[in-house]
Design a protein around this nucleic acid. Structure first.
Length: 338
DNA sequence: TTTTATGATTGATC
DNA sequence: GATCAATCATAAAA
């Protein structure tokens, strides 16, 4: 539309921009443009184009009433069908590429991944009553069996539900804005279709363009929601973040076993289960404790000797008082350690 | 605030 | 799969 095409220009000159049939009322600006045109008669088409541009530019300065009045005048003009016809002809020549415009695009794999994740985490889709992601449920089952984990699990669910709520609020907002904007554009195009040729297919295409733009905004929302869920999960699943020391009693029970089996501080599976039960911790925690204890004892035997003596005298006292409960157990197959 | 203790994790080895 | 050794992250003590 840069006016370099001679055919196009001749069209403009012959009909559209002929002042005799121009639907737009010529204003004083025409005079101004005519005044600096050295050869007004020969350059009439260009002269008229300038005038038209000037008129279009001046629309922004018009009041709404004025614009409405002009629009009304235009719609009532007997030249309007001719103007419309000319626009149809121009369009016929300039929208060839548009016809071949491919509208079928493959579904966005990134969007699909995000959707799947949001669905899996219970953010998208139907709300799960008392539900959480299976992975978290497994993690919780594997974690400590005390009340604290249940409490933190509840905390996780509360935070997940918070994320879900925020996501849906934002999504609704986007959808509302998208619908509003789409219907606004449709109305605008329908209104404009009275003045220029706009096919329903073109309106549909415009709608799909708008939807694509809005879905890219939604993509960002989905992305940030996924990130929030990942952070929450990593915090919940990373047990190191919420390490708690075992109770004093539990440590004593474990130490008693360790120092009374110092020559072979490797409790059997049954012994581990018994210790776990006594200490109120899981079997894997007992295994961890013994793993840590063995390596730290080995690294610092001198210092650990004091502790060893402490537990030895403790056991001796218990034996003297005849309350040697632990040694009585079948979980102490080793004899004569230390 | 810094240091130490301690429970958990990770990768290698057997 | 159990254990070791190194390491991380946090609780508790100094």
């Amino acid at each position: 539309m840069d006016g370099q095409d001679p055919t196009y220009n001749s069209n403009l000159g012959s009909s559209l921009y002929n002042p005799m049939i121009s639907p737009l009322t010529l204003s004083t600006t025409d005079a101004k443009y005519n005044s600096y045109d050295m050869n007004a008669n020969e350059n009439k088409p260009f002269n008229d184009v300038n005038g038209m541009i000037q008129q279009i530019m001046s629309i922004v300065d018009q009041s709404l009433d004025e614009a409405q009045a002009r629009k009304h005048a235009f719609n009532q003009s007997r030249l309007k069908p001719a103007f419309f016809q000319v626009l149809c002809e121009i369009k016929e020549k300039t929208t060839i590429n548009l016809r071949n415009f491919s509208e079928d695009e493959p579904p966005d794999s990134q969007l699909m991944r995000l959707d799947n994740m949001l669905l899996a985490e219970g953010i998208a889709g139907p709300e799960r009553l008392g539900g959480s992601s299976s992975s978290v449920a497994n993690a919780n089952a594997a974690a400590s069996i005390n009340d604290e984990s249940a409490l933190e699990h509840g905390d996780y669910r509360a935070k997940l539900s918070q994320i879900r709520q925020l996501y849906h609020t934002e999504l609704e907002k986007y959808e509302q804005a998208c619908n509003d904007f789409t219907s606004h554009v449709i109305n605008l195009l329908r209104e404009q279709s009275r003045a220029r040729p706009i096919s329903p297919r073109e309106i549909d295409r415009m709608v799909s363009i708008i939807r694509k733009k809005f879905s890219s905004i939604q993509l960002q929302l989905k992305q940030s929601t996924c990130e929030a869920v990942m952070i929450l999960r990593s915090r919940f699943l990373d047990a190191r973040r919420k390490r708690r020391n075992f109770s004093k009693t539990a440590t004593e029970v474990l130490n008693e076993y360790f120092y009374s089996h110092l020559s072979n501080p490797y409790p059997s599976e049954e012994a581990k289960e018994e210790l776990a039960r006594k200490c109120g911790i899981s079997v894997s925690q007992v295994s961890n404790w013994f793993g840590n204890k063995r390596i730290r004892y080995k690294k610092n035997i001198g210092k650990a000797q004091e502790e060893a003596n402490l537990y030895a005298s403790k056991l001796a006292n218990q034996a003297a008082q005849g309350v040697c409960g632990m040694r009585r157990d079948s979980d102490s197959p080793q004899q004569g350690e230390r």
